Amino acid sequence: MDQAARADKTKAARRTFFHVHLVSDSTGETLSTLLKSVAARFPSAKPLEHVASLVRSHTQLDSVLARIEQAPGLVMYTVVDPGMRRRLEVKCAELQVPAISCLDPLLNAFADYLGLEQTRQAGMQHELDEDYFRRIGAIDFTLAHDDGQNTWNLEAADVVLVGVSRTSKTPTCMYLANKGIKAANVPLVPGVDPPPELEKLRKPLVVGLTANPDRLAAIRTSRLSNLGSEDRAQSYTDGAAVRDEVTKAKRLFVKNGWPMIDVTKRSVEETAAKILTLLSIRRGGEG
Rank of each mutant, 00 (worst) to 15 (best):
D131Q: 13
L209E: 00
R86S: 13
A13K: 14
D81S: 07
T151D: 05
E230G: 02
L279D: 01
V64P: 01
A156E: 13
N212M: 02
A157F: 00
S165T: 10
H58I: 03
H145R: 07
N153M: 07
E286N: 08
A7S: 08
N178I: 00
G137S: 15
L107I: 14
E199G: 08
L103M: 15
G28Y: 00
V160P: 02
R166V: 04
M174S: 01
D2T: 08
D231T: 14
K11V: 13
L278N: 03
S37C: 10
S53K: 01
R232K: 15
M84L: 12
D2W: 00
I139N: 03
T277L: 12
Q118F: 02
N212H: 08
K265V: 06
A241F: 05
S37R: 13
V192F: 01
V51M: 11
G28R: 00
V162R: 03
G123P: 08
R85T: 09
P204M: 02
V207E: 02
P47Q: 04
E49R: 14
D129F: 05
K9W: 07
L161M: 11
V97C: 08
E29L: 07
T167M: 02
V246W: 01
H58L: 11
R86V: 09
K248R: 15
L279Q: 03
P47L: 05
I261R: 03
D214C: 02
K11W: 08
T277N: 12
D214Y: 09
K274E: 15
K250R: 15
A66H: 11
G285M: 12
E94H: 11
V162S: 07
E117A: 15
S57R: 10
D25Q: 07
L224T: 04
D62K: 04
P194Q: 09
W258N: 07
V80L: 07
H19E: 14
N153V: 01
A156I: 00
L188S: 03
E69C: 07
D129Q: 07
E29S: 04
Y77E: 00
K250I: 11
G180D: 06
A218E: 15
V189D: 06
G239S: 14
P196E: 07
V162G: 06
T119Q: 14
D81R: 02
P72T: 11
F133P: 06
T142P: 05
A66Q: 13
T271S: 12
P204A: 06
A7G: 00
V242C: 09
F18G: 12
L224D: 09
E155W: 00
S225R: 11
E155M: 04
D214E: 15
E199L: 07
A13Y: 05
T33Q: 10
G239C: 08
L65M: 13
T78D: 02
Y77F: 15
P82G: 11
T33N: 10
K91A: 14
L35W: 01
L74N: 05
A40P: 05
P213H: 04
R15L: 14
G285H: 11
V206L: 07
